[in-house]
């Protein structure tokens, strides 16, 4: 089947089997390998993308569900200032998730901060619950997210 959707802000069309997974389409057809293929069961969160602005695990998204949708991967998001804020905060806090889950964590933090400008500890844990990788620690995660929240708030305030 032919599916047209928005990928990282531009319109794309792919000719694929209806049940082909988005993660495979991204990695193999578009060579967007920064989106990782992990468990293929929606459990690990390595393949996280934004689907119409909400977090989604791309290994559980069949091609037929993409028609008319807007998909933002880490490659698209990394062109935004929000990405820069989050990355700098991770570095400043010493939060160093591994290369396999970092993309999913960054997108999760972005969505969390869109929902809660100053997230509580509980909201942070719940906001990042979709990532099952075992690499990162807890206290620096909290610090990194709170730094990212401050950075985003002050940048957006300055813009206004």
């Amino acid at each position: 089947m032919t599916v047209a959707f928005m990928l990282n802000g531009r319109s794309v069309t792919v000719n694929v089997e209806p049940e082909r997974r988005l993660v495979d389409i991204l990695r193999e057809d578009f060579e967007l390998t920064r989106t990782k293929a992990g468990c293929y069961a929606g459990d690990c969160g390595a393949c996280t993308v934004l689907l119409n602005g909400a977090l989604a695990v791309s290994c559980m998204l069949p091609a037929f569900a993409l028609r008319g949708a807007s998909v933002l991967t880490i490659d698209g998001f990394s062109r935004t200032r929000d990405y820069g804020d989050i990355l700098r905060s991770f570095n400043e806090a010493g939060y160093a998730p591994c290369g396999y889950c970092a993309q999913g964590r960054i997108l999760s933090v972005h969505v969390l901060l869109e929902k809660h400008a100053e997230p509580s500890e509980e909201q942070i844990l719940s906001g990042l619950a979709g990532i099952g990788c075992q690499c990162a620690d807890y206290s620096t995660l909290l610090r990194a997210v709170s730094l990212a929240a401050s950075a985003r708030k002050s940048r957006r305030r300055a813009r206004r």
Partner: peptide
């Protein structure tokens, strides 16, 4: 996969 546990620092 276990998730990050909510525990005190």
């Amino acid at each position: 996969r276990p998730r990050v546990l909510a525990i005190p620092p």
